[in-house]
Design a protein around this nucleic acid. Structure first.
Length: 271
DNA sequence: ATGGTTGTCATACAA
């Protein structure tokens, strides 16, 4: 069985609904995990996804900011959300896919949206950076406590950290830029390794090849400048890593009409 | 060193 799962920070699911539907029409992943839906739950465009063949839609949103959702062609058996940093922030949703009779137990997909962290990389001067570091610390504690990789599991999302040297256009120039500071990159790598996740994109495409999933809106010509960062990730439990054939970034989508600043990232598993 | 853009909601704030 072939399973494809996409992670995409959509930066307003309502504004970009035509783009999402185009993506689903052209690429038809089995599961789409969205971040930054910026959509209160009573306004989520569930029926549009159903019409596109995605019957199973789960979301946790809030007005204006944040918000994550999972849109699936496969039945979702269970949904859980976690809150971090004592905030009700709509930054996580876990769904369990039922792989049906005959298959081994279903598996869980965790969809994360880690805080961006503001501009100043100093937790004493910038509350948003302090919040980001605290969030990563709580993710680490969760990974150690819940042992999510003990069973088949997937973690995707906008983790807002580009952990490796070749996850950014210039390692040297970004060392003091939030998303690539040593305190963030070491924290993210440590929590990933401790919990037992494989960084699927980097297992299949090791450094020094550059991988980017995000290009700032502020660059006048994002494509030509190509000053990207790898902020969006697919992590797999070791057993699922064995089944992973491809992790692809659809850079084209960054060039669509009124795009998100993030491109969709799709993992293909052969189960 | 600085400013550059976008979305939401209401004209500030988060990214």
């Amino acid at each position: 069985m072939r399973l494809t799962i996409t992670s995409w920070n959509i930066n307003s699911v309502r504004l970009r609904l035509p783009l999402v539907l185009r993506f689903l029409g052209e690429h038809a992943p089995d599961v789409l995990c969205l971040q930054e839906t910026k959509c209160p739950d009573d306004k989520f465009p569930t029926s549009d996804f159903r019409k596109a063949g995605y019957e199973h839609v789960r979301f946790v949103g809030q007005k204006g900011y944040h918000g994550v959702a999972v849109v699936s062609r496969l039945p979702i058996a269970r949904v859980e959300t976690m809150s971090f940093c004592e905030k009700v922030d709509a930054r996580h949703m876990a769904v369990s896919l039922d792989r049906g009779a005959g298959a081994a137990a279903g598996f869980t997909i965790h969809n994360f949206y880690v805080p961006a962290g503001g501009d100043v990389p100093d937790p004493a001067a910038n509350d948003k950076f302090a919040h980001k570091l605290q969030f990563l610390e709580e993710m680490r504690a969760w990974g150690g406590r819940a042992r999510p990789t003990a069973a088949p599991a997937i973690l995707v999302g906008d983790l807002n950290v580009a952990p490796l040297e070749h996850d950014v256009w210039s390692h040297k120039q970004l060392l003091s830029v939030v998303s690539h500071t040593p305190v963030e990159t070491t924290a993210l790598e440590a929590l990933r390794v401790e919990a037992g996740w494989a960084d699927a994109a980097r297992v299949l495409t090791p450094e020094p090849e550059k991988i980017y999933t995000w290009w700032s809106y502020r660059a006048p010509d994002w494509l030509k400048a190509n000053k990207g960062r790898r902020l969006d990730h697919v992590w797999l439990s070791p057993d699922l890593m064995e089944t992973c054939r491809e992790v692809a970034v659809l850079k084209d989508a960054r060039g669509w009409e009124r795009p998100s600043d993030h491109a969709p990232v799709t993992a293909t598993l052969e189960l």
